[in-house]
């Protein structure tokens, strides 16, 4: 479980998060939703200790993120930030292989190599493995970053808008993969903008707006017409498709 207690955050004096207390349940796929600027990325970065905590307390599977050594945390959770544009010229296989670094610290074994191969394969990157990161498309680079986080093979996987740049087929493949990981006992937290992905795949939903959590609970109870219309300030209807809610917002 990820437990968030009384977390507030300011950037340059401006309040971004206001006294947030919530939790991401163990063994579930949790979707973080909300309009642009709601504070989803900030909260995820705080959980992933990419940003120092200013107030409050966050624990990941019992590890306090403020006090646990960072390399220990890297074996408990993997985090993929929203900004992944980097100037580094690595081959995709090398990038994904760095996902194993927290485990082997420079001496990869056969287990590490197998996990890298598997992650490359899972995201259809094997044919691109020898290409440089600055010589592939945006979606391919994004998949490589996700594959790196998956290769890290941690109990917790935190992803900030992983569906960015992915086409329909790869987006669905990613969600299936995450679903399978969750069914296998892992826990996933992800920021999702395309609300239907949350509707179709998430167990638990946390809705944020203006730096506050406005709703949380099982997907079915949060993804309602009233709540979503309020959340995004836009009229939203909800239908049903194969027993899951289908959010209609295109016309």
């Amino acid at each position: 479980m990820i437990q968030i207690d009384g977390v507030s955050h300011r950037i340059g004096g401006a309040p971004i998060l206001h006294d947030i207390s919530t939790r991401l349940p163990q063994g579930k796929l949790t979707a973080l939703i909300g309009p642009n600027g709601a504070g989803k990325s900030t909260l995820l970065r705080l959980v992933g200790r990419l940003e120092p905590l200013q107030a409050g307390r966050i624990t990941v599977a019992g590890h306090d993120v403020a006090t646990t050594p960072t390399d220990r945390l890297a074996r408990v959770m993997a985090i993929l930030g929203q900004q992944t544009a980097i100037a580094s010229r690595l081959r995709l296989s090398e990038l994904v292989a760095f996902g194993r670094w927290p485990h082997h610290k420079g001496r990869p074994g056969s287990v590490d190599r197998a996990k890298v191969t598997e992650a490359l394969d899972a995201f259809a990157l094997t044919p691109l493995a020898g290409r440089f990161l600055d010589e592939v498309s945006g979606g391919q680079a994004q998949r490589a970053h996700i594959a790196m986080a998956v290769a890290q093979d941690t109990d917790w996987l935190l992803l900030d808008e992983p569906l960015n740049n992915l086409d329909m087929a790869h987006a669905r493949a990613l969600m299936r993969r995450l679903r399978a990981m969750v069914d296998g006992g892992r826990s996933v937290g992800m920021v999702v903008h395309e609300i239907n992905y949350a509707a179709a795949w998430a167990d638990h939903v946390i809705a944020m707006k203006n730096g506050r959590v406005v709703a949380q609970g099982p997907a079915g109870s949060v993804l309602t017409e009233d709540l979503l219309s309020d959340l995004y300030d836009t009229p939203i209807q909800i239908g049903e498709h194969r027993g899951r809610p289908l959010v209609l917002h295109h016309c």
């Binding site: 990419l50 945390l73 890297a74 985090i79 900004q83 580094s88 990038l95 760095f98 927290p102």
Partner: peptide, 20 residues
């Protein structure tokens, strides 16, 4: 060398991989 290569990937990725 690995550490410098990871550092070159940016603070976010480096911290995520447990690099100080």
């Amino acid at each position: 060398a690995d550490r410098f290569a990871i550092l070159g990937l940016g603070d976010g990725v480096a911290t995520g991989l447990g690099l100080s």
